[in-house]
Simulated assay, not measured.
Amino acid sequence: MRPREYGNFISGIEPKVILGYGERLKVAGPCEWFDEGARVSFWVVTDLTGPQVRKIAHSLELA
């Protein structure tokens, strides 16, 4: 099983998580219960369906 990644939650219209080295990943699914700046863990899912390969943060949990 892949390990979970860790980052900080960024709220907004399109919420994201920011990784330690600055990369920002869009969050998949509802996440209204996280506060801005909260430390979270998540799986990184790779979306290959569009014209660009995107990494998405999936299944957020408080770290």
Rank of each mutant, 00 (worst) to 15 (best):
R4C: 14
G29K: 00
F9K: 00
V40K: 00
G7N: 09
F9G: 04
A63V: 15
N8W: 06
W33K: 08
E61Y: 11
F42D: 05
L19D: 07
G50T: 10
P30G: 02
F42W: 10
E61W: 08
A28C: 13
L19K: 12
I56W: 13
F42Q: 01
R2I: 03
G7W: 05
P51W: 10
G22C: 11
R54E: 15
P51D: 15
V27H: 00
V53M: 12
E61A: 09
R54V: 02
R39Y: 12
W33N: 14
L62T: 15
F42M: 04
G22M: 09
G7Y: 01
R4F: 09
S11K: 11
T49V: 13
V45I: 11
D35L: 14
Y21S: 15
L62A: 07
K55M: 06
I10R: 01
P51A: 11
Q52C: 08
G20C: 09
T46C: 10
P51T: 13
S41P: 00
G37F: 04
T49W: 11
D47M: 02
I13N: 11
I13L: 15
V40T: 00
K55C: 10
A63P: 06
G22R: 12
G12H: 09
G37S: 05
S59E: 15
E36L: 02
E61Q: 13
W43Q: 04
S41I: 04
I18P: 02
P15I: 11
D35H: 08
V45W: 05
M1G: 13
W33Q: 07
K55D: 12
T46W: 03
R39L: 15
C31N: 13
C31Y: 06
T49C: 08
E32A: 09
K26D: 04
L25K: 04
G22V: 12
V44E: 06
G22E: 15
E36V: 06
G37I: 05
V17W: 03
W33S: 07
S41H: 03
D47T: 07
W33Y: 07
S59Y: 14
I13W: 12
G29F: 00
E32P: 02
L25V: 01
S11P: 06
W33V: 07
K55Y: 04
F34G: 14
E61N: 15
F42C: 07
I56K: 08
L25W: 06
L19N: 08
A38K: 11
S41Y: 05
S41A: 06
Q52T: 14
I10S: 02
L19H: 05
F42E: 00
R54H: 10
K55G: 01
P3V: 10
L19V: 10
V40E: 00
G50L: 07
L60T: 00
V45Q: 04
A57P: 08
E23I: 09
A38C: 03
L19W: 07
G50F: 03
P30M: 06
I13R: 12
V27Q: 01
A57D: 12
F9A: 06
K16E: 10
K26L: 10
Q52Y: 10
E36D: 09
C31V: 10
H58V: 04
A38Y: 00
V40G: 01
R54K: 13
I10T: 02
A57C: 07
P15T: 01
G20Q: 08
C31A: 15
P51M: 14
A57Y: 02
L48D: 05
S41K: 05
S59R: 12
Q52K: 11
P15W: 09
T46V: 14
F42P: 02
K55L: 12
V40P: 00
G12L: 11
I18E: 14
